[in-house]
Simulated assay, not measured.
Amino acid sequence: MTKLTVGPWIAAQKLPGRDVARDRLAFLERTRVRLETQTVAGFPLVGLGGSCGKPCFALPYRLTWTEENTQQLEEVAAEFGCYVEYGVYPHLKLHENDQEVAAVQDWTTSATVYLRPGYDRAEELLVRLANTLNPVSS
């Protein structure tokens, strides 16, 4: 699998420089790309993380954390060279440099996964998390 293919979509929305930070028309121009529906591996991109800017993908089910699925999450993390950091919600971070590559959120009406777009195995990780955490297949 590959990095996420939505990098250019994200980059087109970012503030290009402080000189246009108050330019409403420039903002409106950047947001036009949001009219283009984005998906990765069949999962819809529903937005970007507010502080981190990572693309957020909706999973087709609601998630409630349990002893079983948090253990499964840690197993998936290990397969990808990561550990799980439990904050408000779990984050997968690389052992080699503590870089966050994913976060799984459960406090909305459906589960969501935030992914670092430049992570080489991001799409593979998204599919693996979606399959592993699915309460129907558990």
Rank of each mutant, 00 (worst) to 15 (best):
R128M: 04
N134P: 10
G118Y: 05
N134S: 10
V127R: 01
R116Q: 09
A111L: 00
Y119I: 04
P135L: 13
N134H: 12
W107M: 11
L125S: 02
T132N: 12
E123T: 07
D106F: 08
T132G: 11
S137P: 11
N134Q: 07
R128E: 10
T108R: 14
G118N: 11
L129W: 00
V113A: 03
S138T: 11
N134Y: 02
Y119Q: 09
N131P: 10
T112S: 08
S138P: 06
S110P: 02
V136G: 12
L126A: 05
T132V: 13
N134R: 05
D106T: 09
S137T: 15
S138R: 14
S138G: 13
V113Y: 01
R128L: 03
E124H: 11
T132H: 09
T109H: 13
T132A: 11
P135Q: 14
R121T: 04
L126Q: 02
T112N: 06
Y114I: 00
T112R: 08
Y114W: 06
Y114H: 13
L125F: 02
L126Y: 03
S110N: 08
A111G: 04
L125I: 02
T112K: 07
N131V: 14
S138I: 14
A130Q: 05
V113R: 00
V127T: 03
Q105M: 12
S138E: 10
L133P: 07
T132S: 11
N134V: 02
R116T: 07
E123F: 01
G118P: 07
L129A: 01
L115F: 05
D106N: 12
Q105S: 12
R121L: 10
R116E: 12
A130Y: 01
Y114Q: 12
P135W: 11
A130N: 06
R128F: 03
T112Q: 09
P117V: 07
V127G: 01
Q105R: 10
D106L: 04
R128H: 10
W107I: 05
N131W: 13
G118F: 04
P117L: 07
P117H: 10
Q105C: 09
L129Y: 00
W107S: 13
T132W: 09
V127H: 00
N131L: 15
R121G: 04
Q105Y: 13
A130K: 01
T108W: 08
P117Y: 06
L115S: 03
P117A: 09
Y114D: 07
P117E: 08
V113L: 04
V136I: 14
V127Y: 00
T132L: 12
G118W: 02
L133V: 06
R121F: 05
D106G: 14
Y119K: 07
A122Q: 04
W107E: 10
T132F: 08
E124V: 03
S137A: 13
D120Y: 09
R116Y: 03
R121Q: 13
S137R: 15
N131H: 14
L129N: 00
V113H: 02
S138F: 11
